[in-house]
Design a protein around this nucleic acid. Sequence first.
DNA 1: GTCTATACAACGATAGAC
DNA 2: GTCTATCGTTGTATAGAC
Lengths: 225, 225
Amino acid sequence: MANALLEKDKAAATDFLLPSETGAELTAKAAQIVEAARGLFTEHGFAAVSMDQIAKSAGVSKATVYAYFDSKEQLFVAIVSRACRTYAETVMPEVRDAPDIRAALTRIGHAVASFLLAPRTMAIYRIIVAEGPRFPDLARGWYESGPRAFKRLLTSFLVEAIEKGQLKIENPRLAAELFCGMVRGPLYMQVLLNTPDPESPDAETVVNGAVEMFLRSFGVPGARS
Amino acid sequence: MANALLEKDKAAATDFLLPSETGAELTAKAAQIVEAARGLFTEHGFAAVSMDQIAKSAGVSKATVYAYFDSKEQLFVAIVSRACRTYAETVMPEVRDAPDIRAALTRIGHAVASFLLAPRTMAIYRIIVAEGPRFPDLARGWYESGPRAFKRLLTSFLVEAIEKGQLKIENPRLAAELFCGMVRGPLYMQVLLNTPDPESPDAETVVNGAVEMFLRSFGVPGARS
DNA sequence: GTCTATACAACGATAGAC
DNA sequence: GTCTATCGTTGTATAGAC
C-alpha cells in the first residue's frame, strides 16, 4: 500500500521536469563543466563567478563552455536540475513502511534533516533564493520537484497511517507541514547563513523532539507507537 | 516579571550593533539614497542593480551616492541595519503577558508569521541569503540581532510560563525552536521563492495548528489554557 | 556637497584557425 | 569540438568644475 502510494507520488514528482532534464543525460565533458560551475557557485555565489573562472576550473576553454551551454543562466539551470534529481532519489524513498509509526517518523525526520542541511543542498538552495527573482521558472520548478512533491508524499503517508489507526489527525496536510517545519526550521537558517548558534539544539535532539511532539498530538494511545 | 525579562533581553538584542548603527542617525539625503537602493535591491537583487540606477532612482548623481557611502557593499550594510532595527521594534514587544497562555502563543505566532512573511522582510532576507558568503559579518550580525535574539526572548517567556505552572516543558529552548519552525516553516519557502502552493494551509490555519500542537504537548491540564 | 564627464577593469559572448 | 584572441558593453569608482 505504502509502496503503491510511493510510486504514484514519485511519478508525479518527476512528472515535472526542469528544462535541461527533458533531454538526454549529460556527456562526460558537460558534466565536468557543470561540476566545476557548481563548486564555484557554491563558494562565491552566481553573480560573483565569471565564465572564465568556470572554464579554467573545468580545465577547458571558455569557448568550449559555450559550446555546451548557451549562457551562464542555462548552465545554472543544468546544475539545479541535477540537484533535483538527487533529491528525488535520496529523500523520497525514505517515506515508506517501518516497524512502527515512531520509527518511521524518526527515519523521515533524519532523512529530511540530513539531506536538507547537507552543504551541497544548502548551496543550491542559497543560489535559488538569491537568483529566484531573475529565474522565476527555475525557482518554481525546483519547488515543485522538491519540497512540494515531498510534502505530498508525506501527507499520503500520514493519511495511510490514519487509515491504519496509527494516527488521529484532522488535517493531514497541515500536520505534514508542521512536522517539516519543526524538523527543518531550527537549524536551517543557521546553516543557510553559516551562523552556528551554540545555544541551538543539535539535529538529533530536534528530530527526536519533533517526533515526540507530533506523537503526543496525533498519536493513538492504543496503537503501538 | 515578563516585562523585566523583556527589557533585559531587548537590551541584549540591541547590544549587538551592526556597523553603520554604531554611528549617528542617517541624514535625510542618506536615508533617501538608502530607501531607493532598498527598493531596487528588493526588486532585482543585489548584483543586478548598478550604482547608476540607484543614483537615478534617488534623484541624485552617482558622485553624491559615493559621497555618503564608500561602496555598494557599505550601502547594502546600511540597508540591513535599518531592517534589523525595525525587527527589534516590531516583533520583540509582542512577547509579553496575555490573558492566558493560548492567547499569548497565538499572538506571538501571528506576529512572527506576519512580520517574517512581509514582502519587505523577505526581500531583505533574500539578499542576506544571497550575499551571505560575501558578507559573513553582515549575515552573522543579522542573525544575532534578529532570529537569535527572538529565540532567546521566546525561551525566557516559556521558562516563565513553566514557573507559573502554565506549561510543562523539559527543554524550553528546544520547544521555542520547534514552535518557531512550525509557525514559519510552511509558508516561508513559498514566499521566499515566490512559488505559492494552493495546497498549503494559510497563515491563520498554520498558527492555530501550531499553538494547538504546542499546547497538547506542553500544556498543563489543570491550568487555564 | 553636488554635478558632468571619464578612467579603468571585468564580464559575457563570439570569430576564426585548427 | 576545442583553442586563442578579441569585441562591445557595462560596471565601479574618481577627477575636476561649480
